[in-house]
Structures are given as C-alpha cells and as structure tokens.
C-alpha cells in the first residue's frame, strides 16, 4: 500500500491550485522515494514536473510503485475541503481504484476522510535531458508574477532576454510596447528579494504570455522563482518546495517560421 502524511497540508493544496488549469488528468507516480508527476497540457506546449520527496513527509510508505491516475479538477475539489492548517494524509491500496485523503485539524478534534475515484491514464513521458543552461536567473516570484501579468495586458508574447546586466521582458501589441529590465541585485537585506543572474552566454527567446501567466499560479509555493534559458530550448520555470522538492514548468518557445 501507499501512505503519505504531510504535516503542511497547505503545500498540496497550493500545488493543485498551480497545475489544475494547465493539466486535466495525470498519473501521480508513487515510489519509495516520493511522489513524482509529469504531464503536458493538451496542446503539448507546456509541461508540469512535480517532485515531492519521501523525506518531506512526516510518514511515508510505498510498498510497490503505483501510478495513481487522477483528474486534477476533482482532486482540487477534494483538497479545497481541507483547512489550510490541516495535516493531509494520502492513502491508496496496491490494487485499489480509489485514493483516500484524510484531513486532520491541527488540534486533532476533526478528522475527515474523502475517497476519490482513480482513473486509468496512458501518459506520455518526455525524456528531459540534464542541460547546462546558457542563463539562469533567480528572482522574487511575486515580481515575476507581476511582470507577466502586466505584460499580458499589452501583448500576447514576451521576449525574455538575459545578459550579464540582468533579465528583460518585452512585449508589444495594438496599443503600444513595454520593456521591463530587472538588474542583478544582491545587495538587498532579505535573500528572497534578490535577483541573481548566472550567465554563460546572452540569450533571448519568445514565449506565449498566456502560459507564463498560468505558471505564476505557483507563486504561493516559494518566495523565489528560477528561470533557466538556452537558445532553442524550452524555458524552465522552477518553484522550489521547501524540504520536499520542486514544481517545474517547461514552455516551448516560439520558433522562426
């Protein structure tokens, strides 16, 4: 059987909120090292990759590898019934067709069990090679969210450029143009307010703002976001999940016609 008890249940709620509108159905791959998920959106333009390591759980047991086929909208409905401070336990039998979510209130005076039907999903996995990206930028996640939202009101696509000076976001549309530059900034008091640029070669790529906007639903998971770019490769937008792993989004760039 599989069982995982997560003291900070709100993490799982936040993960679902971040991905449920991008991906409909996906397998949660459970193994003794944790829970992993990889899924593309229906147009195969964006991909979600989640890792929740066993060590981040208060209790974790997985007797044999399981692929739990889950409709994310339905799981989101179930998790919305958990309080933000609740402890969440996931349970599934090896041969079962359901998953159980148990919610415990912080002082243990309310215990709820929600049982959700699983589904069979033939998932296509993409092999994502380890890449030395040409540019890696880490910046405040709220700042990234703000920029992407602001630019979305002006254009449909953004050119993201990285030089050793910083990272720039540009767009244009019927009403005009916009260009935002965030400079490397390591002299701020709080580490989470820093913007750091690690660069081997300047890079500039164009992406659909609609998807970038969708990724920023993960902002609540981490104060910082890391953007990894290389010429002619999908961008990686990564939110680290403290002590547990990460939620990564990959987005294919616009290509020359």
């Amino acid at each position: 059987m599989f069982e995982g008890r997560l003291l900070q249940g709100s993490l799982l709620k936040k993960v679902l909120e971040a991905i449920k509108d991008l991906v409909t159905d996906t397998n949660f791959d459970c193994s003794e090292t944790g829970i992993a998920l990889q899924a593309m959106d229906s147009s195969h333009v964006a991909l979600v990759s989640l890792l929740l390591k066993d060590t981040g759980f208060d209790h974790f047991r997985c007797d044999r590898n399981l692929a739990l086929g889950i409709n994310l909208q339905n799981m989101s409905k179930m998790l919305k019934c958990a309080g933000n401070d609740d402890i969440i336990t996931l349970k599934a039998e090896d041969e079962g067709d359901t998953i159980t979510f148990m919610f415990e209130s912080p002082n243990q005076d309310k215990i709820s069990d929600f049982e959700m039907k699983l589904m069979d999903i033939d998932s296509e996995h993409l092999g994502i090679p380890d890449t030395d990206y040409q540019a890696i930028v880490t910046m405040p996640s709220a700042e990234f969210q703000r920029i992407v939202r602001d630019l979305s009101s002006i254009g449909d696509t953004a050119v993201i450029g990285v030089t050793k000076e910083g990272i720039s976001f540009s767009t244009g549309g019927d009403i005009g143009k916009a260009n935002i530059v965030c400079r490397q900034n390591t002299n701020v008091d709080k580490e989470e307010d820093q913007t750091t640029v690690e660069i081997h070669e300047p890079v500039s790529l164009t992406f659909a703002l609609r998807y970038l906007n969708s990724f920023t639903k993960a902002t609540a998971l981490s104060p910082q976001v890391t953007l990894s770019l290389s010429k002619e490769l999908p961008i990686v937008v990564e939110y680290k999940i403290e002590k547990m792993g990460f939620l990564r989004f990959y987005l294919a760039p616009k290509i020359e016609e």
Binding site: S43, H44, H125, L126, T206, P234, Y250, A252, P253, I255
Partner: peptide, 14 residues
C-alpha cells in the same frame, strides 16, 4: 513573432 513550438520537438517521448 514566429510559430508556437511544441515540446515533443525538443524532448523525446519515452
């Protein structure tokens, strides 16, 4: 602006 790329042109399906 260019056409929207697809992930399966960059990564192989396994």
């Amino acid at each position: 602006k260019g056409a929207q790329g697809r992930l399966d042109t960059f990564f192989k399906i396994t």
